[in-house]
C-alpha cells in the first residue's frame, strides 16, 4: 500500500542562517520503505524539480552507527519504541498523516544544515575520560580476570548506547546525563575500569557541563527515547560516583594543602 503524507521539514541553509519549516507533499510512498528511504524519495523529487534536497545524517541504516538523528513528530527517532530513525518503517504511519521533521535541538548540538547537527561534544566528553588507559600489547590473558556474568551483562547494557544523542534531543533540558552515565557506567562497573574510576567520572561530568548541556530533572524522557533502552539507573550510579569522587578529591586536596603547609 502506498501513502500520501504532508511533511513539515525544518530547512536551514547554514549554522547561522535563520531556519523555518517547509511544507512538502510526499505522495505515493511505499509502506515497506524505511523512513530514510521515504526521505530519499522526497529528495530525488526535489532534485528533479531543481530544488535543494533535504540534508540529513545517516550511514549504516541498520540501527547501530548512531548517525541518523531527526525528531519526528516531537520524538527523536520517531514514534516506535527502541528504534532508530533508519529502522523506522512507513507502515507505522497512516495515509494523510502530517509529519513534523526537525533536527535534534540543543545548544550543545548546533544545527549545521537542515536536519544535520554537530554532535562532536560527545567525542570531547569521551576524550575527557571515556577509556581505560591500557597500552596496546600490555594486557594479561583475557581469562585471567574472571568477571561475573551479572557484572558483564550490566556493563553490556550500558555499552549498548550508540551515541546518537536522542537522550539530549528528548530531554526537556537538553541534558546529556543518559549518554554520559552510560559511558561512565560501563567502565565503572567493570574491574578494568576501577583504577581510573574517580578521574573518569570527574573528567567526563565536567566536560559535559562545559559543553552547555542542561541538567537532569529526573523526568526520564531520555530513557523513553533511547533506541537502545539504556536505563535511567545509570544516571543514579553516576550521581553517586560523582559525589564520591568529588568528596575524595576535596579530601585529597585539603590533605595536600596541610602537608604543604608543614
Amino acid at each position: 500500500m502506498n501513502l500520501n503524507l504532508h511533511l513539515k521539514v525544518w530547512r536551514q541553509a547554514s549554522p547561522n542562517a535563520k531556519g523555518s519549516f517547509q511544507d512538502i507533499e510526499a505522495r505515493d510512498i511505499p509502506d515497506h520503505a524505511s523512513f530514510l528511504e521515504m526521505m530519499d524519495i522526497v529528495n530525488e523529487r526535489l532534485i528533479a524539480d531543481g530544488k535543494e534536497p533535504v540534508a540529513f545524517d545517516h550511514d549504516c541504516r541498520e540501527g547501530i552507527c548512531g548517525m541518523c538523528s531527526m525528531v519526528i513528530n516531537g520524538r527523536p527517532h520517531g514514534p516506535e519504541r527502541a528504534t532508530t530513525t533508519c529502522q523506522l518503517h512507513m507502515r507505522k504511519f497512516r495515509n494523510g498523516d502530517t509529519i513534523w521533521i526537525e533536527p535534534f535541538r540543543a545548544r550543545a548540538f548546533p544545527v549545521m544544515k537542515d536536519l544535520m547537527v554537530d554532535r562532536s561534544a560527545f567525542d570531547r566528553i569521551m576524550a575527557a575520560g571515556g577509556f581505560v588507559s591500557v597500552r596496546t600489547g600490555a594486557p594479561q590473558d583475557a581469562n585471567a580476570l574472571p568477571i561475573g556474568k551479572e557484572v558483564a551483562d550490566a556493563a553490556m547494557d550500558a555499552a549498548a548506547c550508540i551515541g546518537c544523542g536522542a537522550c539530549v534531543a528528548s530531554c526537556k533540558n537538553a541534558s546529556a546525563m543518559l549518554f554520559v552515565s552510560a559511558k561512565i557506567g560501563q567502565l565503572n562497573a567493570l574491574p578494568q575500569g576501577q583504577p581510573e574510576k574517580h578521574r573518569r567520572t570527574l573528567g567526563m561530568v565536567r566536560q559535559m557541563d562545559k559543553e552547555g548541556f542542561g541538567n537532569c530533572t529526573n523526568q526520564y524522557e531520555c530513557e523513553a527515547a533511547c533506541p537502545k533502552d539504556v536505563s535511567r539507573t545509570w544516571i543514579a550510579s553516576m550521581n553517586k560516583d560523582f559525589a564520591v569522587a568529588s568528596g575524595r578529591e576535596a579530601l585529597l586536596a585539603s590533605a595536600r594543602e596541610r602537608s604543604e603547609g608543614d
Binding site: V132, V134, T136, P139, A142, P146, I147, G148
Partner: peptide
Amino acid sequence: IIDQCVAQGVPFAREYGGLL
C-alpha cells in the same frame, strides 16, 4: 586481540563462572 579488548573494557559475553 581478545586480551587487548578485554583490558579496554569490551563487555564480551561471559559464562556464570566469569570466563569468556
